[in-house]
């Protein structure tokens, strides 16, 4: 298995004191190249689970292993290295780097990981329809273009795992369909597994497997 989450629990402190349980005993496994949709109502813990799978946060109990290595118990620097080299992240708000142009944004994570492949980046830019905009600033792009750039950035280092949080949540129907198709196509090409948090039935239906979260538990 590429990714294994085992009996994950996570709570968040409440401003009024006490704590709110967000995830309670969640377990899942993902094979290389597999695609998975995480669905659920707002506040069900989908994004929190995705952050734990990405090593952005630690569970209160339980474990996350990536490629057999225990991600959740690694120190900060080692988790950072895992994110840099083995995980591609796509956010709903795109979270591009406004101070770098499109070309630099596209290549950024690959260069951080030390796996920059100029040819592959050019292919990605072409396939994602970004080639004419390489010297533009991210904020001048449309929402769809920005999300395509975020997907390109996540795939540039050819990581084995792509984690996407509502990748089409901010896009219109047509753009959403284009972005989804491109993401699945490129993930398949690179052999990356894909976990997508989504509210969209269309996106969920496009994945090979679907899991539904309800009040912090897998249904």
């Amino acid at each position: 298995m590429l990714l294994v989450a085992d009996d994950i629990h996570k709570t968040f402190p409440l401003p009024s004191g006490g704590a709110q349980a967000v995830l309670s005993g969640v377990s899942l496994a993902l094979a290389p190249g597999e695609t998975l949709a995480l669905t659920g109502e707002s506040g069900s813990g989908k994004s929190t689970l995705l952050h734990l799978l990405a090593g952005l946060d630690r569970p209160d109990s339980g474990s996350v292993t990536l490629g057999g290595a225990p991600l959740s118990t690694l120190p900060d620097a080692a988790r950072a290295e895992a994110r840099r080299t083995r995980i591609g992240l796509v956010f709903q708000q795109f979270n591009l780097i406004p101070s770098l142009d499109v070309a630099a944004n596209l290549a950024f994570q690959a260069r951080l990981a030390g796996r920059h492949d100029e040819g592959w980046c050019a292919t990605l830019a072409e396939r994602l329809g970004l080639a004419p905009h390489l010297s533009a600033w991210p904020e001048t792009l449309s929402g769809g273009q920005q999300q395509r750039l975020a997907i390109g950035r996540a795939l540039a280092a050819k990581p084995p795992l792509i984690l996407a949080d509502e990748p089409t949540g901010n896009l219109d129907e047509e753009n959403a369909a284009t972005v989804l198709a491109l993401m699945l196509e490129l993930a398949a090409e690179t052999g990356a597994a894909l976990v997508t948090v989504t509210h969209s039935a269309t996106v969920a239906a496009a994945m090979s497997r679907r899991l539904h979260l309800s009040r912090g538990k897998l249904a």
Binding site: D76, R83, T85, N95, I97, Q109
Partner: peptide
Amino acid sequence: LPQIAPVWAMGTTRA
């Protein structure tokens, strides 16, 4: 924070 957070998420430590 929104400018630093993506760089952190992509594997740069807080230190």
